[in-house]
């Protein structure tokens, strides 16, 4: 009798998730970006003396494989060669980002499933306390891992790399506006707003200015944008 009580919610769970899980998996597989291909492309740009494009490709590769030692080493090397400040990652960031974002996403889903199932089990069988309790703790830990991974990656969703050396950051989004400061090629900036062909950026030093869209490469390109 108890088995039938538990199997009904599980069936609901499985059949309820099926319409969503299929498209989610399907959307994850179109063959367009690959960490290795981006890494090799970045190496080619680096050898060709194009540090801006090289850093952009390394950043994109690092999004897909954040724990790849080759990607991080070459990114650091090219930035150092181009005299661009290198952001050092903390121990916590390295620990959290050791998990691939895709894996982290599915671990989060697993955490939600664990917590929900454990709560359900406690409601159905209140006497068994340890197993549901362990499931809840593990599920919350997985959700926390995913959340930390997402929080660390969130700023990079709005990052861009300067592709042209001596790119002027202007005080207003017009071509003839005064130059507020100059950006080096391969420098990473944060995009905060956009207006027509200009993007408002904030440098790592806290300076803000408008930069021509053509001089920047977004680390995460908008959907449908040309790579």
């Amino acid at each position: 009798m108890r088995a039938s009580k538990t199997s009904i919610p599980m069936l609901i769970l499985i059949f309820g998730l099926a319409p969503w899980a299929g498209p989610a998996f399907a959307q994850a597989s179109p063959p367009r970006y690959s960490a290795d291909a981006l890494y090799n492309l970045a190496n080619s740009y680096a050898r060709a003396g194009k540090p801006g494009l090289a850093v952009l490709c390394y950043e994109r590769a690092a999004l897909l494989a954040p724990d790849d030692a080759d990607i991080n080493a070459n990114l650091e090397y090219v930035r150092a060669s181009a005299h661009v400040a290198v952001k050092a990652r903390g121990r916590f960031a390295r620990l959290v980002q050791a998990v691939n974002p895709t894996t982290a996403a599915w671990l989060g889903v697993l955490g939600v499933a664990l917590v929900g199932t454990a709560l359900l089990a406690r409601r159905i069988a209140p006497r068994s306390r340890w197993l549901p309790g362990g499931g809840i703790v593990l599920g919350i830990a997985l959700i926390a891992l995913t959340a930390c991974n997402a929080m660390l990656l969130w700023p990079r969703m709005h990052e861009a790399v300067v592709l042209v050396d001596q790119t002027p950051a202007r005080v207003s989004p017009v071509p003839m506006a005064d130059t507020a400061f100059v950006l080096r090629e391969a420098q990473s900036v944060t995009m905060t707003a956009e207006h027509e062909d200009f993007i408002l950026i904030r440098s790592s030093g806290g300076l803000s200015g408008w930069v021509a869209r053509a001089n920047l490469g977004a680390v995460v390109p908008p959907v449908g944008a040309e790579r």
Binding site: R32, D36, W106
Partner: peptide, 28 residues
């Protein structure tokens, strides 16, 4: 390369994927 994806954004930043845990939570 052996594996490739269609979008650089991590899964948890995509609306289509967020529907998965949301639906899961609702069902539970």
């Amino acid at each position: 390369a052996r594996e490739s994806v269609g979008d650089l954004r991590p899964l948890y930043f995509r609306v289509s994927f967020l529907a998965v845990p949301a639906t899961l939570a609702l069902i539970l």
